[in-house]
């Protein structure tokens, strides 16, 4: 009985030690995850600033000769194609 008792206690101690080692690894992984999350958050914020409508418009004005446009309906689109075909 005493031997069994000792054996179980030893097993529990070993398991506990293993568990604490795993806990430490998990904590390290979580810390790394947090760090990466912080970095990602910063990069995302920076990206949002760079890709803000104001900056995109400025860029397109400089490089793409930006101009406002209107949406064409599909039927109008077909009419234009037809008209251009007729001209040929």
């Amino acid at each position: 009985m005493v031997a069994l008792f000792s054996l179980i206690l030893t097993a529990v101690t070993i398991l506990k030690h293993e568990l604490s080692k795993l806990e430490l690894k998990i904590q390290e992984a979580k810390d790394l995850k947090s760090k990466l999350q912080y970095d990602l958050s910063f990069l995302r914020a920076e990206w949002e600033y760079l890709a803000s409508p104001k900056n995109i418009e400025n860029l397109s004005n400089i490089h793409l000769n930006y101009q406002h446009t209107a949406l064409l309906s599909f039927n109008d689109f077909l009419k234009i194609l037809k008209n251009s075909e007729d001209l040929k």
Binding site: Q67, T69, K79
Partner: peptide, 30 residues
Amino acid sequence: IAPLLGIEKENTYEDLLVKKGRKGINFASF
């Protein structure tokens, strides 16, 4: 904002005519 909201422009027949002598079709101009 109409194009951003997906509202199509109602064009008249004259708007949709392709002028002679014009090279290619620039849909942005519509």
